[in-house]
Design a protein around this nucleic acid. Structure first.
Lengths: 412, 412
DNA sequence: GTAAATTTATAAATTAAATTATTAATTAAG
DNA sequence: CTTAATTAATAATTTAATTTATAAATTTAC
């Protein structure tokens, strides 16, 4: 499935050391691709100014890139005095990237083109995430099925990224929480099966990346993304880059010891934020309340759906179920307390709330906001915007696709 | 006091936009300076490989830099086969930088040359930090006195950096906790008085920077530096750069709400780490213990020194005073609990303990280490080294000098 | 102890890129 | 509607940088 254009991209972004002039041309071509990537499109003059090279040099590089199939002439810009300039942009269909977002009870999977358009996706593909070979095989079948369903024009796939929850080292491609069955990195194993260059990323970080580059984030460079799901995930963007820590384990905010309860967290300790402020905790607390005699619109014939999914509670909250609203607010207050610690440490420009629980919108945002006001240093807190995810449930696939794309293009 | 060499450096690192060839030469010269800065010295071949330019081009740039007085020929390297290469390095005495480290009860001030040697310093200059005009005037007199005492050869000062505790925005030069009397940024005010380009930095960040570039840090890029002083400071180095947050308020670890005590922190909240795990808290607890009848070698005729300085308690701890050792261990345990939160979030390669309390060495390090083992996620914690500061009380001045130098040279 | 191999430095030749000049296309002013 | 002013693209010229060749300085092998 390797086209000539495909090969040209690999060549351009390969690491092989070449000499003098050839190296400089390659660097400049990469710089042009990166500039077009950031700005969408540009004229010769734009590029000349951005890269500090002369007009004739820029022209010849652009012509080469057009010959490579990576750039195309997009016509002329409007002029307000003077000859109209040609404008150049990336060729959307020159390459595609896949993002696989693995959730607890389903998989989302999407295809992004070279210009960062999501051209195809399959949402909510039924799946049960478990740390077993069967579960892994099922995931592979879903990926292969997705590729199989693509039109021929979309099969020029350069790379894919799989988002997994838990501890993932995206540098060496190992996943420690799931599918850690072999010596080889998981990314290599998937790569061998699918024949497509594969990267691995933590789910919350991938969502943060998506939100950062194609979502709610504008010019902010230091951003925290909170993934409110069954657990509490954190994606840290610093200086516009994903922060992963030494081994890719950064962002474990679920285990801030904020409580003096007796609940044993799965990490083995007591009092972790996750024990009282996660989706898991929400379900537990909801069931407890029902057992204690509270009523909810989720009950039919005095029975709850079994298994009770987080999505059910979210839906009821949006339908103004009083018990759900109350519990979600409680979760929000606790999340806010945890977040205030992070805000004191990071002084971020922006905190984005994402993940399934964020779909309760103001029901979760307001208690978080007021907890931030209450618990974090006001001078620091005043700097921080609190916004809801824009990409919603697509943050993961878009982020995954972008990571695959940007790792390959060494844009990150 | 502006020499020709001085002017050459300013020109080389100024932001003015110049055209084509001149711009490229300037960039390459900067790149050479930066490379020599990182590696200490280099041959023409080294530079050729590092910057991807040809040998004759490198030769001519080096010759220009020698003409500018910024680079010098340091003789020949040993050869193991082939003609011996000339080696080039920065000219140490081409420029100097001042670091002013403002502590609660004294000021440290030092002078660094272009090759990052500390050529002069005055430690423990008596001073009382207070948020008053008098205190500010006194600080200025100390700086001017230090410069006055320098030999003529050392007066070619390019920039200085003042380290202040509390909230400092080093980007715009405002200090919010001290000397915030005027509309103008404090850095500009000092600049006008001294005639030297001035930068401001938070004390813990400056110490972290010193430790990072000239201290205990080797190849680690993600490092936390904990400044154990009257308060608890945190310097965050990410990807080799100081992390400051949006307005320079990042790193407020003293206000993690870990306790359920009734002590009102100066931030207005209860339960902050700082209320039980700072130098301030140590003095308070020490006095309480004495009042409750405990004995200590610090007592003479049943009386404690007044005022009782943190340094006194540190000294007694090193002299094996049992009460002091006990209290320091208690502080360590609590610091460790706070740090374990940060380690879960940052997954750093290295945590460095600095500040005056760190001079109790193992008396503080061991309780911190065991608290980390107990309270942070083992997978994450296993990644993290815990080391003591190498620069000790000079971390601040060296860091300050380096910040002044690197801001000017846009190395950061 | 001399020659071969290796590495650096400089000089000469060649190639590449930047300037400058020219032509083309477009808007605004008279 | 024509001309001046402006901006872009291309061609011609000049300048700059890379390559290649040569000379110089060292180490190692025979």
């Amino acid at each position: 499935m390797q086209s000539q254009v495909n090969q040209n991209i690999f060549d351009l972004f390969s690491e092989e050391t070449i000499s003098g002039v050839a190296y400089k041309n390659k660097s400049l071509k990469r710089a042009i691709i990166n500039h077009l990537d950031k700005t969408g499109n540009a004229t010769i003059t734009d590029l000349t100014l951005a890269l500090n090279i002369s007009v004739p040099k820029t022209t010849s590089l652009i012509n080469e890139l057009i010959g490579d199939g990576l750039v195309k002439d997009e016509g002329k810009v409007d002029s307000k005095g003077g000859r109209r300039a040609n404008i150049y942009g990336l060729v959307a269909e020159s390459a595609f990237f896949i993002g696989v977002d693995v959730k607890h009870y389903h998989v989302n999977i999407g295809l992004l083109d070279f210009k960062k358009n999501l051209v195809s996706d399959e949402m909510q593909v039924p799946y049960l995430l478990a740390n077993t070979q069967e579960s892994f095989d099922h995931l592979i079948r879903i990926i292969q099925g997705f590729i199989g369903n693509l039109s021929a024009a979309h099969r020029n796939i350069l790379a894919l990224c799989v988002n997994l929850s838990g501890r993932v080292n995206s540098e060496n491609g190992y996943s420690y929480s799931f599918f850690h069955f072999h010596e080889e990195p998981l990314s290599t194993i998937i790569e061998k099966i699918t024949g497509i260059r594969t990267y691995l990323e933590n789910d919350s970080r991938a969502m943060a990346y998506g939100e950062f580059h194609n979502g709610i984030v504008r010019d902010e460079k230091n951003v925290l993304f909170v993934n409110l799901d069954y657990g509490i995930g954190l994606g840290i963007m610093i200086d516009g880059k994903i922060y992963r820590g030494k081994s890719g384990f950064a962002g474990e905010m679920g285990h801030i010891p904020l409580f003096t309860n007796e609940l044993i967290c799965h990490c083995g300790k007591k009092g972790c934020l996750e024990t009282e402020a996660s989706g898991q905790a929400l379900i537990r607390m909801f069931k407890e309340k029902i057992a204690q005699g509270s009523g909810s619109s989720l009950q039919h014939d005095n029975k709850l759906p079994e298994p009770l999914h987080l999505a059910d509670i979210i839906q009821s909250t949006r339908n103004e179920d009083v018990l759900c609203i109350e519990l979600v607010a409680g979760i929000g207050e606790k999340i806010g307390r945890g977040l205030s610690v992070l805000i004191n440490i990071f002084n971020p420009e922006l905190v984005v709330l994402g993940g399934i629980l964020s779909q309760t919108d103001e029901y979760i945002r307001l208690p978080i906001r007021s907890a931030l006001n209450k618990y974090s240093l006001s001078l620091v807190n005043n700097d921080t915007q609190l916004l809801m995810s824009k990409l919603k449930e697509k943050a993961g696939i878009i982020g995954g696709c972008l990571i695959a794309r940007d790792k390959l293009l060494s844009v990150q």
